[in-house]
Design a protein around this nucleic acid. Structure first.
Lengths: 197, 197
DNA sequence: GCACATTGCATACGGAGCGTATGTGAGCTG
DNA sequence: CAGCTCACATACGCTCCGTATGCAATGTGC
């Protein structure tokens, strides 16, 4: 009865502890300034665990981003599902992205450090759940004729990219609570360029 | 007759040599991996010159970005000036941004590393000439009633941000020459959301 | 024009961090 | 229960950044 925790269990637990600590450290210090010695020590481990489980520092970032990206896509889908009109549903998803990205953790890790370290989001290993969900919605709207017949990949990339860019602008603004409605309104206006007449 | 070069002249020359070398090094290796020892040695100097003239590594990046940003804004203005119709002039500027950002140097330094190291472009020390020029054009179009009466700051930020995002997508694409026209077309379509009816 | 102050840049030093190579002890296996 | 496995710890070397100090050439007051 001794092994209250099996080997695989503690391994997964340690993995999550590291990812959780990394979300905090990467968000507050930034990827470059985050010390892996401190990070691992803060959860009672050493760098040995890190390099065994994630390969290198970038690997840990990729794991963090994959997790956050998944959470964001889930929340966006939920927001979109609460609206019936298909076009408004897409805008609800996008607005959800903007509001989620006001979280400094997300801005710093996913929007700033992520592209710089891992390259353009379109070729992240986690295959970008956020981008995939908007692409799905856009493909549907184009098929229904709600949106003009534009290239689905390009349009969805522009829509999600603009949403995150709007969030970066709001987050860097002096008065985010004032900038947010401006950004959302401008975003909706711009997105309507895709609407079929 | 000895001092063929005055002190101020050599100082400015060294400054430009460092900036020029940094554009190359930051673009190929990325900001984080660029060694300042190698960089300074490549132009016959040492890190002493760097820290005296730019403060730190980030300072050199800021100087590089200020220079590139200025060049981009100039080229965009030229592209816009070649078109008479004011709305098409704005689109010409934006398309110029997309095409310029296909240069790997610009993508890597200005679009990827820049925001990660210096923060959101809206608050760069060089006060972002690119953003300023599109803001100028947008303000004019709103005043003329060509564009809907949206918030100028928000709209111009979305327009320039989307242009650069489009370039990132094209640059990361497998077949950039195929993706580019798709991106430009989708961009134009989306931007028309701002057009007054 | 000469002594002196200035300063742009080089040299030297210390510290931190990453990645790897190797060790080890707790769990799985037969 | 004996031996293997492997997740993780330990130890090492290397690179790199930032600062403190030194120096020599340029510019300045008299």
């Amino acid at each position: 009865m001794m092994p209250r925790k099996s080997r695989a269990e503690t391994m997964e637990a340690n993995r999550q502890k590291l990812i959780s600590a990394a979300r905090e450290a990467f968000a507050t210090a930034g990827f470059a300034s985050a010390s892996m010695d401190e990070l691992t020590a803060s959860v009672g481990l050493t760098r040995g665990a890190l390099y065994h489980g994630f390969g290198d520092k970038k690997g840990l970032l990729a794991a963090v981003i994959a997790q956050v990206d998944g959470e964001m896509a889930t929340r966006a889908k939920e927001a979109g599902a609460q609206v019936n009109d298909p076009w408004e549903s897409l805008l609800a998803e996008a607005t959800a992205y903007i509001e989620m990205a006001l979280d400094p953790q997300i801005r710093r890790i996913v929007l700033l450090d992520g592209p710089a370290i891992l390259g353009d989001p379109s070729q992240w290993p986690s295959q970008n759940a956020c981008l995939a969900t908007t692409e799905q919605a856009v493909a549907d709207l184009v098929a229904r004729g709600v949106m003009k017949p534009v290239d689905v990949e390009a349009a969805s990339r522009l829509l999600s990219g603009a949403a995150f860019d709007a969030a970066l602008w709001v987050g860097a603004s002096d008065a985010p609570d004032i900038a947010l409605p401006k950004a959302v309104h401008a975003y909706r206006t711009m997105a309507e360029g895709f609407l079929a007449k």
